[in-house]
Amino acid sequence: MTVQEKAKTIVEEFSMFDDWMDKYSYLIELGKELPLIDEKYRNETHLISGCQSRVWLHAEDKQGLISFTADSDAVITKGIISLLIKVLSGSEPSEIVGADFSFLDEIGLKSHLSPTRANGLVSMVKQMQLYARALQIKQNS
């Protein structure tokens, strides 16, 4: 599946929720369930510091496709991270660099990606795209 297709699936999933409670309960479940990052990467080098919740991100090159793992100390942030990982992980670098994050807007979570929300997500997305860009350059050289 392409990044776009995966994003569409998530939008469809979220369209089933009638109210904010269901939506956030789902995010919390996603956040709780996923053991996102290998403990050894939960360190200073992998830390993306947001003002409030901390986010750790690790990227790996798996035969030309990028695989992300991440974690956060806030569970809602973790839920949103796992959405982003569902959409981006296992994709070609070029797809990640050019990814459209409007699906977060469609499921009503855009505010979490606005720079005023000091939760580390904005920096995380930037960091994901930076990794992708770096791998893209490596592949092209």
């Binding site: 919390i28 919740s53 100390d73 569970v75 942030t77 979490h112």
Partner: peptide, 18 residues
Amino acid sequence: HPFDLGTLLDQMGVAIRT
């Protein structure tokens, strides 16, 4: 995490700071 509480309180119309 206070951020989680703040996010959910906001959904319920309660403006606090975390």
